[in-house]
């Protein structure tokens, strides 16, 4: 929901970043206010994941120019874990498997870390179990997944659901969902979308990277951005996604 009076969460100006000496982001601008839903679309390799990871603080990428602030704080002065504690959450395009660390142990550790940061009580395993039983309903996940190692042996779709479970537990202010819809079957897409919608409020915001208009039927964006060659080249409303669906990206590139 657009409300120009609401608080700016993320403000990115002319962001440039490189990996291995190659410039990938060539001046990205983006402003996200509380309550908003943004979608970022664009061809493969245009820099969407890079942008997401740079915001989360991935060490492979070097910021070479521009600024980014989160609730007024310079994002690049913060370590990845500090960004997470400040309320940024990245759902990975390719979630990693962590053998030997159970899903529930990770969730509790992460949750308690944030509780401490917010000056709230940590939950012991029993108390946490109550919370987690609530949260898995959001993504309609079988409780047996809690006892399994993080993402180990999970199907592609199960991994994506697991990312949203983490989002549900950590309740971020800004969630960046990098192709969370890719690899989901039709039912799972609906469940995940419903889950994300239930987490949205006027105090938080979501940035979804996606290739498909279908997701946007479920989670309706306030803004649709098109990324190309490491820049956001076009911003519109939800109808832009429909147009892209119908016409592809070439017309935009020709116009640029």
């Amino acid at each position: 929901m657009i409300n120009k009076a609401s608080k700016v969460l993320l403000e990115v100006k002319n962001l440039k970043a490189e990996v291995g000496g190659v410039e990938i982001l060539k001046g990205v601008d983006l402003t996200v206010r509380a309550g908003e839903v943004h979608a970022i679309m664009g061809i493969n390799g245009s820099g969407k994941s890079t942008f997401s990871k740079v915001l989360a603080g991935h060490p492979d990428y070097t910021v070479t120019g521009g600024q980014a602030s989160f609730e007024g704080q310079d994002l690049f002065s913060l370590e990845p874990e500090q960004r997470a504690r400040a309320g940024i959450f990245l759902a990975f395009q390719y979630p990693v498997e962590i053998p030997g660390v159970s899903n529930s142990a990770l969730l509790r550790l992460a949750y308690n870390t944030l509780q401490t940061e917010r000056g709230l009580e940590e939950l012991d395993p029993l108390e946490f179990d109550d919370l987690i039983q609530e949260k898995i309903k959001v993504v309609e996940m079988d409780p047996s997944f809690l006892g399994r190692s993080v993402n180990e042996g999970f199907s592609g779709g199960e991994k994506k659901r697991n990312e949203i479970l983490q989002m549900a537990v950590l309740a971020p202010k800004l969630a960046i969902l990098d192709e969370t819809d890719s690899g989901l079957d039709i039912d799972a897409l609906r469940i995940v979308a419903k889950g994300v919608n239930s987490l949205l409020s006027s105090d938080n915001a979501v940035v979804m990277v996606t290739h498909y208009q279908r997701l946007l039927n479920y989670i309706v964006p306030d803004y649709v951005h098109v990324m190309d060659g490491g820049r956001i080249v076009r911003t519109g409303g939800k109808e832009l996604a429909l147009e892209l669906e119908a016409r592809g990206y070439d017309w935009l590139r020709a116009a640029a």
Binding site: A56, G57, H58, P59, E79, P80, E81, R83, A84, R85, F89, L90, F92, P95, V96, I98, P99, G100, V101, L106, L109, A110, T113, L114, E117, S149, Q166, L170
Partner: peptide
């Protein structure tokens, strides 16, 4: 990759490394 993932969930570098080391031993 695992280290960054854990940090992106709020764990400190030390906590994340310990968790991964412990997991390696846990097998």
């Amino acid at each position: 990759g695992a280290l960054f993932f854990l940090k992106s969930r709020g764990l400190t570098e030390e906590r994340a490394r310990n968790l991964l080391t412990h997991a390696f031993a846990a097998e």
